[in-house]
């Protein structure tokens, strides 16, 4: 186990964490502003990936396809918000869980009917090779692109939320919805916008992770639950919390999977280490969540005081 290997896995963790952040950012605002649980957020991630795969095929260009998939997914997200989710804000959480669970079932089948169970999306040829990051440490250039895009998106989102008027309204809505309403903020329109932005972030994550994982029906569900873990750790409604939580979850998950079996092998008999290592590694982020909950039940950066 060399330092370059650890550094490589840490970069992989950062890359996964940044993509998790793109999902969690939209989700945490939806929770924070409307106190609404949206299980179908992962379906937008799936739709973004399928749209990207289709558009990349149609245009013949990876960049163009992904760039077109982003507004398309945002549009679908906003339509979904206006048609279905808007009526759910005033409802209890049980109705929200059921309706958005129903949406997952519906969208999964719609994707299966339109596209089939999976689609091919490969890394663009230019970025298929590795770059030598440090002497003796090659790193896939596509993963570097993901890190760059993730950082850029996070930075842009930060500027949008922290420095613009719309961002101020979003923060006001997230920290105290009633007060924002009383001050005359049009929460309804604001929320359609936030939802569209969340869908766009989903599309970026789906399109970029598509070549690494697989573009298939159900791809949004396991990552959605990880995004929930991120939000619980970071604190509902907090963008900063989502960023910290996402990178923490991404790095802990990746490093744990890569090194925990080896680490256990240092002081445990090999047959036990090879069984316990992967088992503990797969539940590590959930244990992290439990610890955070125990210490800070409101998450690391609670948006509400």
């Amino acid at each position: 186990m060399s330092w370059t290997l650890i550094l490589e896995q840490a970069l992989n963790g950062l890359q996964f964490g940044l993509m998790l952040f793109l999902l969690a950012a939209g989700l945490t605002l939806v929770f924070g502003i409307m106190d609404m649980i949206n299980l179908a957020h992962g379906s937008l991630y799936m739709l973004g990936a399928f749209l990207a795969a289709t558009l990349v095929q149609a245009t013949g260009s990876f960049t163009l396809g992904v760039l077109l998939a982003i507004p398309a997914t945002a549009l679908i997200g906003m339509l979904l918000e206006i048609a279905v989710l808007r009526t759910l804000y005033a409802r209890d959480h049980l109705s929200q869980v059921l309706a958005t669970f129903a949406l997952i079932l519906i969208l999964n089948e719609v994707v299966r009917i339109v596209w089939g169970s999976d689609m091919a999306l490969s890394t663009p040829a230019v970025l298929s090779g590795p770059v030598e990051l440090l002497p003796g440490m090659p790193y896939p250039s596509y993963r570097l692109l993901i890190i760059a895009v993730g950082l850029a998106a996070a930075g842009l989102l930060y500027l949008l939320v922290a420095k613009t008027r719309i961002g101020m309204l979003v923060r006001a809505g997230a920290s105290n919805r009633e007060m924002a309403l009383a001050m005359g903020v049009d929460i309804r329109r604001l929320f359609t916008l936030v939802f569209g932005a969340g869908a766009a972030l989903c599309a970026i994550a789906g399109a970029l992770l598509g070549p690494l994982f697989a573009v298939q029906v159900g791809m949004g569900e396991s990552i959605l639950i990880l995004a929930f873990v991120v939000i619980v750790i970071g604190g509902i409604g907090s963008i900063r919390g989502a960023l910290v939580g996402a990178v923490l979850v991404g790095v802990v998950d990746t490093i744990g999977r890569a090194f925990l079996p080896h680490f256990f092998g240092l002081f445990l008999p090999p047959q036990f280490a090879s069984a316990a290592g992967p088992a503990i590694a797969s539940v590590l982020v959930y244990l992290l969540m439990a610890v955070v909950l125990f210490v800070k039940p409101q998450g690391l950066f609670p948006a509400r005081g």
């Binding site: 759910l88 109705s95 059921l98 309706a99 669970f101 079932l105 519906i106 089948e109 009917i113």
Partner: peptide
Amino acid sequence: NLGVGLVMLAIV
């Protein structure tokens, strides 16, 4: 599942 989903959504 499409049917199950649509029925659930309509009920809710």
